[in-house]
Design a protein around this nucleic acid. Structure first.
Lengths: 195, 195
DNA sequence: TAATTTACTGACCCATTGGTCAATAATTGA
DNA sequence: TCAATTATTGACCAATGGGTCAGTAAATTA
């Protein structure tokens, strides 16, 4: 094996720098020079490691996504029951280190490019597929089959909607409120009164 | 009265052109020249009627928002009962002429600028306040007071989340599915089993 | 009709930025 | 030690795009 240790280190630094600059500057403002400066390097090095700007931000999105995925997976591994699995997915998506306005701003900037950037669209597709698959693995044991799809979509939409709210109106939506919302939905939609 | 008829006409043309270009090009790609061309005018005229690019897109957002507001209000005016009011709000937010991927793309581009554009943030705030107020006017008659806030937020988040899904994954989410989702939520959360 | 305001254009400017490249430093490996 | 690869920089380029401006056409008003 040989993958020039340093190259992998630099690439990671730059991906993260890109994501961090994105948080404050948006896609247009996140210039290659700013990203380089933020990583303590020169613009040239960015294009040495990434084909172009799109390529850089594609990898930035991948990295951010991987973080979230790992957080959810860590919780899923500890979950024993379907209910716990559901809880793991929900709480993983609202961990305090992620559920922050600036992080949401970066995601918003990336999502806004999805329609014109097939690479980003693919990542988005993967994210959604994983979310759905995770949710289904829990819901299947909690609901009649024919309701699972709808509830999985609703939970996904709720999570996205709450994130969006955080990004658009930083004040006035705490992590706790968001989690309470999710639990309220689950309580009413899954823990039914009748049976 | 005097407001130079033509100036109001031009301004409206340009706002709409701006929003339409935004649908396909995103904020960075929506250049003043493209907007002008799309309206059959020259770049100069755009800056004759709008202070700068931000100003133009602020008005574009206002215009798009007004459209949605009018659609909802028209339905609200016909609504007789709280349930009908709720239905009006929901269906107004998913009218076929609005609930389209390209429209959502434009909104996404605008929302992505909100964090760095105080003017857009203000509009966003107004939008949310109106949505909340509309919802509360119905929910107050359907639920105990202390649950209204939460349900209003959930409905808002659900709507936003479904719109986002439409923007990020055009295939696979129809208007009918989105509406079914909303009705499913309302049915389970408001039309309770017990009382 | 004459005068004044408004509409509109196209040329121009300048700052920015993505991307290329040649040259140099560092590292690796034989 | 010496060659070959890799890392890194900074200068440079071409293009783009936002914004200004001077000047012309149109229209409104007196």
């Amino acid at each position: 094996m040989k993958l020039t240790k340093i190259s992998e280190i630099r690439r990671k630094e730059l991906r993260q720098a890109a994501f961090e600059v994105l948080q404050q500057e948006g896609m247009a403002g996140a210039t290659l020079e700013k990203v380089a400066a933020h990583a303590g390097a020169s613009k040239g090095i960015v294009l040495h490691y990434f084909r172009n700007k799109q390529d850089l931000f594609e990898h930035a999105m991948r990295e951010a996504n991987a973080s979230l995925r790992d957080a959810v997976n860590a919780r899923l591994n500890r979950a024993r029951t379907p209910h716990e699995r559901l809880e793991a997915i929900i709480e993983g998506n609202f961990e305090e280190r992620f559920f922050r306005p600036s992080i949401c701003h970066a995601w918003l900037s990336l999502c806004a490019e999805v329609p014109r950037e097939p690479q980003l669209a693919r990542i988005q597709k993967v994210i959604h597929a994983r979310m759905r698959s995770n949710l289904m693995s829990a819901l299947v044991h909690l609901l009649p089959r024919n309701e699972c799809d709808a509830v999985a979509l609703a939970i996904t939409a709720l999570i996205d909607g709450l994130w969006l709210r955080l990004g658009l109106q930083s004040e006035g939506l705490t992590r706790e409120m968001a989690l309470a919302q999710m639990k309220d939905y689950v309580a009413h939609r899954i823990a039914r009164c009748g049976d």
